[in-house]
């Protein structure tokens, strides 16, 4: 694309970034706006919508539910991800491509298909819908992300370090605790943060698989119908965005630290 000058490409990149950030910038603007109507011009500055969130009990319940779902999902999918990432990074075994492909499948499967499939199975088995069924679905879609993050952590792990540890008389557990774990720990924490964030924001599966207990996005969906509730939804969204970005910065920093510790190029790994 050299025949297009670099200047135009830069202009394009800037315009594209404005396109990407347009909704993100509007979110806090309307969250601090006094008017209940979500439109310009802005009428004045207020924090009442944020204060209001503090007194909304249904929101607190939804937040609590999302926390339970998010934390459980993060733990389970990172554990499952660690098994699979370790296996695929360290060992050759028959059917590897097919097995890893199947595990990574939810990454490209439309969420509505995953949701509907689980719904059909749960109904057939006569299992009631609850927060745990949501966790079941979330683990499925989060595990591939965990594998992607942990694979790069495990690939950077030098096999000889572990062998040296065995040779020096460490037990398998000792080797894991003193050699393997410290090296992949930043990757593990990064995976926990990312999977938690995905679960916290996931709507479609939660919408289909939740019973009477709603998660935060399902709560937001129910609030979008009431125009009067919109400013507080904006305030809630602003808080969620801030929290997500903080968690992501943390995850990214940890991932880079882990890569730097293993001497891997940080620009491409994990992308």
């Amino acid at each position: 694309m050299k025949w297009i000058s670099v200047k135009w490409l830069t202009v394009y990149a800037v315009v594209y970034m404005i396109f990407l950030y347009a909704p993100v910038i509007l979110l806090p603007l309307f969250a601090f706006n006094t008017s209940t109507i979500i439109a310009f011009p802005l009428s004045g500055f207020t924090t009442e919508w944020f204060v209001g969130l503090w007194y909304t009990d249904t929101l607190h319940t939804a937040l609590g539910n999302s926390m339970i779902v998010g934390v459980t999902t993060a733990l389970v999918s990172t554990l499952l991800g660690a098994f699979a990432a370790r296996a695929s990074a360290r060992f050759a075994f028959p059917g590897k491509t097919g097995i890893v492909g199947l595990i990574m499948l939810p990454l490209v499967l439309p969420e509505i298909i995953v949701a509907v499939a689980l719904l059909v199975m749960l109904n057939q088995l006569g299992m009631p819908l609850s927060l745990w069924t949501v966790v079941g679905g979330h683990v499925l879609i989060c595990t591939p992300f965990s594998i992607a993050i942990l694979s790069s952590a495990y690939r950077g792990l030098d096999r000889e370090l572990e062998e040296a540890s065995f040779d020096l008389g460490e037990s398998r557990w000792g080797t894991f605790r003193r050699v393997t774990l410290p090296l992949v720990l930043p990757g593990v924490i990064s995976s926990l943060l990312i999977t938690f964030t995905i679960s916290l924001d996931e709507f479609i599966i939660a919408f289909f698989l939740t019973g009477t207990d709603v998660t935060l996005p399902v709560y937001i969906w129910s609030q979008l119908r009431f125009p009067a509730k919109l400013p507080s939804v904006m305030a809630l969204g602003t808080i969620l965005l801030a929290v997500s970005v903080l968690l992501l910065i943390l995850a990214e920093a940890l991932r880079r630290r882990s890569a730097a510790r293993q001497g891997v190029d940080t620009t491409l790994a994990g992308v």
């Binding site: 499952l80 098994f83 699979a84 370790r86 360290r90 060992f91 595990i103 199975m121 595990t143």
Partner: peptide, 25 residues
């Protein structure tokens, strides 16, 4: 090979029960 399969089996089992079976259903 055995170790690799053993290590990946929990994840595989999860996907078989929670994805492959529901899709077949």
């Amino acid at each position: 090979a055995g170790q690799g399969l053993k290590l990946i089996s929990p994840t595989l089992l999860y996907v078989l029960v929670m994805l492959a079976a529901p899709l077949l259903m």
